[in-house]
Amino acid sequence: MLPEPLIQVLQVLTVAGAAPGISGVIARVEATLQGRHGPRILQPYYDLAKLFRKEALAPEGASWVFLAAPVAAFACYLTVPLLIPVLTTFPLPLGYMGDILGGGFILSLASFLVAVAALETGSPYAQLGASRAKTFAAITEPVVLFVVFTVAMLTATDLPYALAATVRASAGQIVRPAHVLAAAALFMVILYETGRIPVETHSGTNEFGMIEEARSFEHSGPYLALLRWGSAAKQMILYTILLNVFTAPWGLAATRGAGPVLLAMVALPAKACVLGAVVAVIDDSFAKLRLFKITEFAAAAFLLAVLGVFTLYLGGG
């Protein structure tokens, strides 16, 4: 029997530790699909290690915010795993600290901090990326809200643990349209939030199309490493929410025993790898949307989310 605080720490460590690996897997799958050999799966870890050894520079005139933002954002990303079912089916002591909205707020706070830091730099690309990210976030936010509404109506709470338990309860819960639609809408939001095709190219140098990637242009050294790691952690958190709350809440530890918890620590990255492979396939099968068409993508997600709420009201959802 592991003490609950330890499990809680393990949740954070699992997310933080596995996150760069997932990015590595996606990059590798993508390369394989394109017929390239591709980087090592562990490459992101090496990159991070290298960046941590480099010196840090800040643009002239940038205030302390510029340097504080990566650290604060990273701290935000490490807070969210406390709130969501990463390893256990039962809520841990800090799990009730915040609901789905609370987690969402913390994620947006991190994104806000990064955007502020980008504005500090005076670099046009960084600012462009930050302002675009905020613009489109205004469209994806209602989608997330509707997804939360759906969750709330399905479970009468808005706690991630409760939804995961509901989904596990019966097969009917998984196939009900409201749930399927909400999960699909959330998946589209995740594609947007993690900067994947069809919203933006993840690897490349097309500055004009960049949103997420452009914001860290002026950072360097350990600060850039923290931003990169933070991005990977955010991706991992979003994947965890989709997997452990919506689509596949299995493989979680039901007790505090060391065995189940260890199993869960392996299962989550494994599931995330599968999801990452799916994302990589999407990455390779579609073209990037023109910037103005991204609203259309967000509108489609919105449509799914709203239809999800509708079907619930119909009684058969």
Partner: peptide, 17 residues
Amino acid sequence: PAPAPSVFAGTANVIAV
């Protein structure tokens, strides 16, 4: 909470949607 439909109803509704 909205009660869950049967698997058949759920699947049929998903197809309808």
